[in-house]
């Protein structure tokens, strides 16, 4: 039986027919509506590649049953840039070389956006490292990732002050 799932994805409200109750939010994004920026690395909450924001909070979309999130606001990596203007976190990841193969990168970036919004790590690199440890990077771009989060935090602090 097809159920209709209402989601606001990257600011756009959508009615998504769900043909299978087993569908995770990750598989809905990737296989049903074509938002393939969000990646599947383990499908079991162990790598963070599938990180998206639900109502502003970072979660692993592979362990989110889609039907359970009816009515939620989802932000994916496709929803960060405004046209050609990159989000400060995206720009910082390029600048600090916070990735190599790029596969974990959407998850890293979504996690970083949330980490900065959570406000608990601030500019303490050790807290940034701990706060980003739910996102595995097999290329091991960790030094660049940490630097990128710190750069973006500073940039966003300046924006807020301005």
């Amino acid at each position: 039986m097809t159920q209709i799932l209402k989601l606001t994805i990257n600011g756009t409200s959508q009615d998504i027919p769900i043909d299978d109750p087993r569908a995770t939010l990750l598989d809905v994004l990737r296989e049903r509506i074509g938002l393939t920026g969000t990646k599947k690395g383990c499908d079991r909450g162990q790598c963070g590649a599938c990180t998206v924001l639900i109502d502003g909070r970072r979660i692993n979309s592979c362990l989110a049953l889609a039907l359970s999130y009816d009515g939620a606001e989802i932000t994916t990596v496709e929803g960060l840039a405004q046209g050609d203007l990159l989000h400060p976190v995206q720009a910082a990841f390029i600048e600090a070389d916070g990735f190599q193969c790029g596969y974990c990168t959407p998850g890293q970036i979504m996690s970083a956006v949330a980490l900065i919004a959570e406000g608990e790590a601030g500019l303490d690199p050790e807290r940034v490292r701990e706060g980003m440890s739910g996102n595995l990077c097999r290329c091991a771009a960790y030094a660049g990732i940490t630097e990128a989060v710190l750069k973006a935090t500073r940039a966003m602090n300046r924006e807020d002050a301005a």
């Binding site: 990737r30 296989e31 074509g34 938002l35 393939t36 920026g37 969000t38 990646k39 599947k40 994916t76 990596v77 496709e78 960060l80 840039a81 990159l86 995206q90 720009a91 990841f93 390029i94 600048e95 070389d97 990735f99 790029g102 596969y103 990168t105 959407p106 970036i109």
Partner: peptide
Amino acid sequence: MTRRDGVLKVTGRATYAADNR
């Protein structure tokens, strides 16, 4: 130089094999 594929990778537009539909 920074990566030429950087923008694709940070915006989710870099297409990996399983992204094809």
